[in-house]
Amino acid sequence: MAILFNSPQDDAGEFEAWRKPLTAADPNMELRFWPNVGRVEDIDYALVWLPEPGDMQRYPNLKVIFNLGAGVDKLLADKTLPYHIPIVRLVDPGLTSGMTEYVLLHTLRHHRGQHVLDQQQKDRVWRQKLFPLSRNRRVGIMGLGVLGADAAAKLVALDFDVAGWSRQHKSLPGVTSYHGEDGLEAFLARTEILICLLPLTAETRGILNAKLLAQLPKGACLINAARGGHLVDADLIAALDSGHIAHATLDVFHKEPLPADNPFWVHPKITVTPHVASLTQPETAIPVVLDGIRLHKTGRPIPNTVDLKKGY
C-alpha cells in the first residue's frame, strides 16, 4: 500500500515525522514524498495540504484524500479533484486542542484588555484597569463544529457567558444557541468578543463585513482564526479607526504569508499571528488517518468526510 504525502510547505524532517510512525504501524505501508511519487498507479491514499492544482487527478487508483487540516476550501477550489472518492477533513485531538488554546489565549487577552496594558508599557504609564468578571463577559463563537464546540466548552468552564451561531441549531451544555439568518442579529447584539471558526463557503465568504461589525456592541473585539476570506479587510480597518471595534486578533489572511506592506502589520489595534492557531500534529493525526484507512477498507464511512453540497 502506497500513500502520497503531498505538502509542499513541509521539509524532509516533517515527512519523516509522518513516515516513521506510519510504517511502524504497518510495515507494508509505503509513504512517498511528493514530487518523487514513483509509479502513479501505486498510490492508494493521499495526505495533502495545498497540493498543486491538477495533481490529484494523476493517480488512477486513489481511494481517499485526507486533507491535513480542518479547512478544505483551498483544496476544493481545484476543479480537477476526483470528486467521486471520499475527501476527508483531518480533525484530530491535537488540532482541536491547539485551536482551543488559541481561542482561550486571545479571548482572555481581550477580556482583560491586554492590548491596552501593552501600550501602557510602551508609554511607561502605570494605570490599573478594571475588567469585568468572566460571567459578565459575553463571548460569541461563529461555527460550532468540532473546533468551535470544544472552544465553547472550555470557555464555559472558565465561567464566560458563551453563545454560538451556526448554520443549523446546535445544543451544547451552557451555550446559548443561535442559528441561521434569523438568529444572527440577536447573536451579534449580545457579543462583546466575537470568534470566527466558520468553514469558508460561498455563503460565509466576506461575512465579517461592515454590516456585521456594526451590529456588535461598541467596543467589541474580533478573533478570526478561520479563513482570511471571511473578512472584508477594509471594513475592519474602518470599524477599528472609528472606535466601534476596540481590537482584532487575526491569524488568517487573504494572501499568506501576509505581505510586508499590508496595513495589518502596523495597525495599533490589530494583533497579527502567522496562521499558527492550530497546526496538524503527526502524533495525534496519524491514528486518525490509520483509523480512516481501516474504515475505508471495511466499507464503512469515514468521519469528517466532506459534504460537497455544503462545501465542508
Rank of each mutant, 00 (worst) to 15 (best):
P21L: 04
V103W: 04
L133P: 07
E256F: 05
G243C: 07
P263T: 00
F160Q: 06
Q281F: 04
S171G: 00
P173D: 07
I3K: 06
P199E: 01
L4K: 06
R167C: 09
D10K: 13
N136E: 12
S242W: 10
R137C: 12
P86M: 11
D261N: 12
P303S: 02
Q128I: 03
H267I: 00
P173A: 04
T204P: 00
L31V: 13
D233A: 14
L76V: 08
H111C: 14
Y59D: 11
L222R: 05
L133M: 03
P60R: 11
H111D: 01
Q119R: 14
I3C: 04
P259V: 03
D251N: 05
R32N: 09
P303G: 00
W34E: 08
I286D: 09
Y312K: 00
A277H: 00
L133T: 07
S7A: 13
Q119L: 03
A12Y: 13
K129C: 04
A157G: 13
L31N: 10
V64E: 06
R32H: 09
N36E: 14
V91K: 02
A234V: 15
R109L: 12
L81T: 02
V289E: 12
T273Y: 11
H110R: 07
H247G: 02
E16C: 08
I223A: 14
N6Y: 10
L308F: 14
S177E: 03
P274V: 06
E14S: 09
D150Y: 05
P301I: 03
E14M: 15
L212C: 15
I237N: 11
R127H: 13
G183I: 07
H169Y: 14
L4Y: 10
Q9N: 13
G38L: 02
I245Q: 07
V37Q: 12
P35Q: 02
T284V: 06
M99D: 05
G94Q: 03
V116R: 13
I293H: 00
I193T: 15
K297Y: 08
A153Q: 14
R137L: 04
T280A: 02
T96V: 15
V37T: 14
K79W: 09
L68A: 14
L133W: 00
A186L: 11
Q168E: 13
L184P: 10
G206K: 00
I245F: 03
A70G: 15
A202L: 07
W18Q: 02
K74D: 10
F131K: 11
V175T: 05
T23Y: 01
D118M: 08
A277C: 00
D123E: 11
A239R: 04
H179L: 01
V125Y: 05
P259H: 03
N67T: 02
S166K: 09
G94H: 12
I237H: 05
V64N: 08
A214M: 09
W265H: 15
P217W: 09
L194A: 00
L133C: 12
N36S: 11
K170F: 07
K74Q: 11
P53S: 02
R190P: 01
